[in-house]
Design a protein around this nucleic acid. Structure first.
Lengths: 127, 127
DNA sequence: ATAACGTATGAATACCTGTTCATACGTTCA
DNA sequence: TGAACGTATGAACAGGTATTCATACGTTAT
């Protein structure tokens, strides 16, 4: 998973490649999302692409939970949960709130829950 | 990214772990999606978690394209595109149609396009 | 048949990722 | 102050992943 995308070709360079429908290629390139957006969304999907992180996110879509309860809920070690939460936090998929010794996590906004719910709805159709 | 999830603990085993709110843990575990569904959705998100595959999917969400045009559109080699399409095909995110020598790809259903569109809408808010 | 074309695929490689282990941090309570 | 608790984090390791290269496949046209 490259951190950068392949360089955008100029139309001149593009003409050197063999294509079957230059118009469609031009349109696809014109409509493509900016690299920054693509990279950020790919990171987000990748974060949701680990079964354990996905379970953490789903659990948090139902209720706020602290780290050790998350660990107990999904059967991970405290350390693994903490590492996973850091990834989700850096991508702003989850927020944390501290209450004395305990840190409670919740989803950062409703979009995340919707993304997960949409995904589950999709795969549940196919099982 | 483990291919299997950690074993589900029995309530007895669960009680041996230190938790701060046993009721919340029980609820989280009761509401958790089946492992089969979680693993399948994680695979799907992971497939969308590569920038190049995400661009392929997005391009296909706008129009049907053949392999070489996809390669030209996103600036990947034909081989890399073909490998990527195989992954997307196996997860039934894309469908292919053959017309003589040329193979045209399109998204398998509208859910995929919606998932991508929702994702883009989410990250575009944050940039 | 043979060549050209578009696509698919196996092997190899360099890179990335998720877990564990050990330990450190910040907070509370005795 | 010091011990216990909940959490965070760095290092290390095992396993996974995406690309390239070479080549094979199926189709069409000569």
């Amino acid at each position: 998973m490259p951190k950068t995308l392949s360089p955008v070709l100029t139309d001149d360079e593009l003409c050197e490649l063999k294509v079957t429908d230059l118009e469609k290629v031009r349109r696809a390139r014109a409509e493509m999302k900016p690299a920054e957006v693509v990279l950020l969304l790919a990171e987000t999907f990748r974060a949701l692409g680990d079964p354990n992180r996905l379970r953490l996110v789903y659990a948090l879509s139902r209720q706020e939970l602290c780290v050790c309860d998350l660990a107990a809920a999904v059967g991970m070690s405290q350390s693994a949960v903490s590492h996973s939460l850091r990834i989700l936090r850096q991508l702003r998929l989850v927020q944390s709130r501290r209450e004395s010794k305990t840190t409670y996590y919740r989803l950062d906004d409703e979009h995340i829950a919707r993304l997960a719910a949409d995904g589950f709805a999709h795969v549940e159709e196919r099982v």
